[in-house]
């Protein structure tokens, strides 16, 4: 029982980890909590659904198109809305993302209706592998885990070893100085939003395939992703991923041993607990300014 709870906890945690990654990427560059994150991902999942069901395209094609859409959507939202804010403060920007969230939600409800749709996916949640003992893991869970880990490694390499990745970090630390290096800060921000949107979209595809697809798809995962990000310190990619796994496992254990009804409360409890005990998060290795 324990082994199974932990295993499925890790698998669920992987989707939280992806959502947390998506939020952290944006938070790192602009200190903005993106409340539209979930619905950006949800819309991308609908695009994938449309390609698959309405136009009958193959999986590879559909997902590629949907990811491209996700990137364009993120970049567009940054360019069209967030950049327009004159002398923005963080609160104002957060309000903008809330507005975007409502817009995207409305758009999806209007275009696809609010009934639940089956999201076709090439791997199934019912084919399971024995992990020893009576612990099993489904194909889908394995894929989810794989995708989360692969994206994490990709992002890590990107931020560590590519010029653009380092420029993103530079922009986050000091925008004025970044401009003085000739870094086009506007483009960096668009790229940030695009990348974040793609990561979120991956999470949405995986979540939609275990569940059904409707405009409320990402409401809970966004909250969970946010909790995981807070747990990991909001600025650390590794922290966000570990936060996602920890949250998934803790939540599952709570559901298994204490109460299934109150399982959803765990994420809230985690946020409150972290904010009380260690507001910088468990894994924040934030640079401490010398005075």
């Amino acid at each position: 029982m324990l082994g199974q709870l932990i295993t499925s906890g890790i698998a669920i945690g992987a989707t939280y980890a992806l959502m947390a990654l998506a939020m952290v990427i944006i938070y790192k560059t602009s200190e903005v909590l993106n409340f539209a994150q979930g619905d950006m991902a949800m819309l991308s999942a609908f695009v994938a659904y449309m390609c698959l069901s309405t136009y009958g395209l193959g999986f590879a094609m559909s997902f590629t198109l949907a990811l491209a859409f996700a990137f364009a959507l993120g970049a567009f939202l940054e360019f069209a809305f967030l950049r327009r804010a004159k002398e923005p403060n963080v609160l104002g920007l957060i309000i903008i993302t809330l507005g975007l969230e409502m817009m995207l939600y409305g758009l999806a409800s209007w275009r696809w209706g609010s009934d639940q749709k089956d999201f076709p996916f090439p791997v199934s949640d019912f084919d399971v592998y024995q992990l020893g003992g009576d612990v099993v893991i489904s194909q889908l869970n394995l894929v989810t885990l794989g995708v989360a880990c692969a994206l994490m490694i990709l992002l890590f390499v990107f931020f560590r070893y590519t010029k653009v990745g380092v420029a993103m970090k530079a922009t986050q630390q000091n925008q004025q100085a970044a401009r003085l290096m000739g870094i086009r800060v506007g483009r960096i921000m668009m790229l940030t939003w695009g990348m974040s949107s793609v990561v979120g979209a991956c999470a949405a595809f995986l979540i939609a395939s275990t569940d059904t697809l409707d405009p409320n798809l990402m409401w809970t995962p966004q909250l969970k992703g946010f909790s995981a990000a807070v747990l990991g310190g909001m600025t650390s990619l590794v922290g966000a991923v570990l936060g996602g796994f920890i949250l998934g496992v803790v939540e599952n254990l709570f559901g298994g041993y204490v109460s299934v009804e109150f399982k959803a409360v765990v994420a809230f409890a985690v946020i409150v607990l972290i904010l009380c005990v260690k507001p910088s998060g468990l894994f924040a290795k934030h640079y401490v300014r010398k005075v």
């Binding site: 630390q173 004025q176 100085a177 401009r179 003085l180 290096m181 000739g182």
Partner: peptide, 29 residues
């Protein structure tokens, strides 16, 4: 900047959480 002007701002404004090498690489962005 692209036209060939560089400004070393008052108070340095280096990228504190990047390494020395990364800072220099940003100069050559």
């Amino acid at each position: 900047v692209n036209l060939g002007l560089a400004y070393v701002p008052e108070g340095r404004e280096v990228f504190e959480e990047l390494t020395v090498l990364e800072n220099l690489q940003m100069g050559a962005y």
